[in-house]
């Protein structure tokens, strides 16, 4: 069991939780994730490690409550415990001194981008950060990112904070200005956002790294459910990723596979309804 040390709401439906997991905290590097199971009946939920404190033996996770598994996790208060926290999984971010780097985060993807941004800043990169959300309350980790960024830009769809529009609006302006053009772009967020960022940087061939979040079961390479097509090859996000070259990722396939279970009814029921008299051949 893994003790919850704190649990706070940082934006509607999004919690920041600090969990006691000393082994994971000691081994973890930026870009890696854990798989969390709330209780004995829980699903295995992959969550990026937003931050870690090896001395305190704790991990920080930012969790959006969207399904049964995540709702159960965010329901655990300080002093209670999570059934399973396993990791750190995946490959750590390749951190190097690129020079100018733009980090882009959309929605809770900002929490995925945060540890990478921190590592890139610590490595001496000049950081421009663009974070977006539906409206002001949904833009997270603003202060934390402002502290490590040379420039921080916010965008909201309703204009309630920063520029009105999407993160790509600001990124487009930066890319168009040769004096601000970055050597690398790092993006984490909804699939359409990452796909749009990759398309924006493609013409100038700016190195673009994206962090993918496909459906996953074990997280150790055993099941292959998280397979993604990268440069025409099958890769497993859990062991080969989660970060990949954004210019090589098949985002359309990723988006479709993420939706695989987003039908209230199972396929059998649907097919059987469509073909009520289907007999065994």
């Amino acid at each position: 069991m893994f003790e919850v040390l704190s649990n706070e709401v940082i934006c509607p439906n999004v919690h920041r939780m600090v969990i006691r997991a000393p082994r994971v905290a000691a081994a973890r590097r930026p870009g890696q994730f854990v798989i969390v199971r709330c209780d004995e009946a829980g699903e295995r939920i992959p969550l990026t490690i937003a931050d870690a404190d090896p001395a305190a033996g704790s991990l920080t996770l930012v969790i959006q409550a969207v399904g049964d598994g995540t709702r159960c996790i965010v329901g655990k208060q300080a002093g209670q415990a999570l059934q399973d926290v396993v990791g750190p999984l995946g490959l750590a971010t390749h951190v190097e001194r690129w020079g100018r780097v733009v980090c882009v985060g959309g929605g809770v993807g900002t929490a995925v981008m945060f540890p990478v941004a921190k590592a890139l800043a610590e490595a001496g990169n000049e950081l421009t950060t663009i974070i977006g959300g539906r409206s002001a309350p949904f833009v997270i980790l603003r202060d934390e990112l402002a502290a490590i960024s040379r420039e921080l830009h916010c965008t909201t769809e309703d204009g309630s904070l920063g520029r009105k529009g999407f993160v790509t609006l600001v990124l487009g302006e930066i890319l168009a200005d040769p004096s601000r053009r970055p050597q690398a772009v790092y993006a984490a967020g909804p699939v359409p956002m990452m796909a749009a960022v990759a398309e924006q940087t493609r013409p100038q061939a700016v190195k673009t790294i994206v962090s993918l979040n496909p459906i996953m079961v074990d997280g150790t390479g055993m099941c292959g459910g998280c397979r993604v097509t990268v440069g025409g090859e099958i890769k497993f996000a859990c062991v080969d990723g989660p970060e990949f070259d954004g210019h090589l990722v098949d985002f359309q396939e990723l988006a479709r596979r993420q939706q695989m279970y987003n039908h209230a009814d199972c396929r059998l029921d649907r097919r059987l309804r469509e073909h009520p008299d289907e007999e065994e051949p």
């Binding site: 079961v217 390479g221 292959g224 459910g225 397979r227 097509t229 099958i234 396939e253 596979r257």
Partner: peptide
């Protein structure tokens, strides 16, 4: 055992295709 092998045929990442492990 480790990573499941796939067939390397088109359509392998369609929805409804699983490795036996998964």
């Amino acid at each position: 055992a480790g990573l499941p092998m796939f067939l390397n045929v088109p359509g392998e990442n369609l929805s409804g295709v699983y490795s036996a492990n998964e």
